[in-house]
Computed example of a mutant assay.
Amino acid sequence: MLVIALDTSTPAVTAGLVALDGGRPRALAERATINPRAHGELLMPHLLDAMAEAGHELADADAIVVGAGPGPFTGLRVGMATAAALGQACGRPVHPVCSLDAIAAEAAVDGPLLVATDARRKEVYWAAYDADRRRIDGPHVQRPADVPTSGFTTAAGTMAELLGLAVAEPRHPTPVGLVAAAREALSGEPAPLVPLYLRRPDAAEPGKRKSVLTRGGK
């Protein structure tokens, strides 16, 4: 089984092609660039470069996996919209996966794990996992000081160092991690493509304009 994997939930622009053939998922080719302002410009070029390196066309993929966040509104919607468009164009199922789950799936550590990524506004997105990488809490958005770290010795993700625990890789979702986190879902119907924003976007609709007319219509 060939799976396209995309993620734009963090400052990393990530795309790759992963083979899932009974064993652990393995990356055939991948691209990742740390640039929080270039998700829209780099995602499709990264994917096309990875497909070319792997010697495959987009239509060769059997499924698409996309990181659904949590993540900032502007970046996250790029990956979700791109995955949806690819799925429609190629006639392939698109499976969303929690991006924090993808990081946890690739963390080569023993025992329980916390994963934290940048939520801006001096906050982090976080989730907790047991030793088998099952999510047991989250995802949430909070200040680092409010994240419950008792019982954990290791953290992963872009903001792991703020939790005061030993830091493990990866910092960002990888194509292999995305597919590993979505592995069970790939055998069934895709879940709805709903992004995990966890809070409202910064932009807000403008309020009602005040009238410039003085009382009495003058």
Rank of each mutant, 00 (worst) to 15 (best):
H140G: 03
R134F: 10
D101I: 00
V97Q: 07
R143K: 10
R143Y: 14
P96Y: 15
I103C: 00
L113K: 14
V124D: 02
A127L: 01
S99E: 04
A131Q: 10
D130V: 13
D132P: 04
Y129S: 08
I103D: 13
F152S: 12
A105K: 02
V141L: 05
V141P: 09
T153S: 13
A155H: 07
A116M: 01
V115K: 08
S99H: 03
L100Q: 01
P148M: 10
A128V: 03
A128S: 13
G138M: 07
H95T: 06
Y125P: 03
A108G: 08
P139D: 10
L113E: 07
D118R: 05
V97D: 09
S150K: 11
C98H: 03
A127S: 12
Y129V: 15
T149R: 08
T117F: 02
E123P: 03
H95Q: 06
E123C: 08
P144C: 02
L114S: 02
R134I: 05
A119L: 03
Y125H: 03
P112C: 14
P139S: 14
L114Y: 13
E123Y: 01
V109S: 11
V115A: 01
D110G: 10
K122N: 09
P144F: 00
P139H: 11
E123H: 05
R135I: 04
A119R: 02
L100H: 05
Q142A: 15
V94Q: 09
Y125W: 13
R133K: 12
A119C: 14
C98K: 06
P112Y: 09
Q142S: 11
P112H: 14
S150A: 13
V109W: 00
A155M: 10
K122L: 03
D132T: 12
L114R: 15
R120D: 08
A145M: 15
D146K: 07
G138T: 04
A108I: 03
V94I: 05
D137P: 05
T154A: 01
H140F: 15
A116I: 02
D132A: 12
A116S: 04
A104D: 10
D132C: 04
A108L: 13
V147Q: 12
D118Y: 05
D101A: 02
A155V: 04
A107N: 11
V124F: 04
A108N: 11
A119T: 00
A131M: 03
L113T: 06
P139A: 11
C98S: 10
A105Y: 02
A145H: 09
Y125I: 06
T154M: 01
L100C: 03
P148N: 08
G111E: 14
A155F: 07
D130I: 11
I103K: 12
A104P: 03
L114E: 00
V94D: 09
V109A: 05
T149E: 14
A131E: 15
H140R: 12
R135F: 11
Y129T: 07
V147E: 11
D110P: 08
K122D: 13
G111F: 07
A116N: 01
A155N: 14
G138L: 04
S150W: 02
A131D: 13
V109R: 05
K122G: 00
Q142M: 11
R143W: 10
T117D: 00
S150M: 15
A116G: 01
K122R: 13
Y129P: 14
P139T: 08
A102T: 05
D146C: 03
T149A: 15
E123V: 04
T154F: 00
A105T: 10
A104L: 07
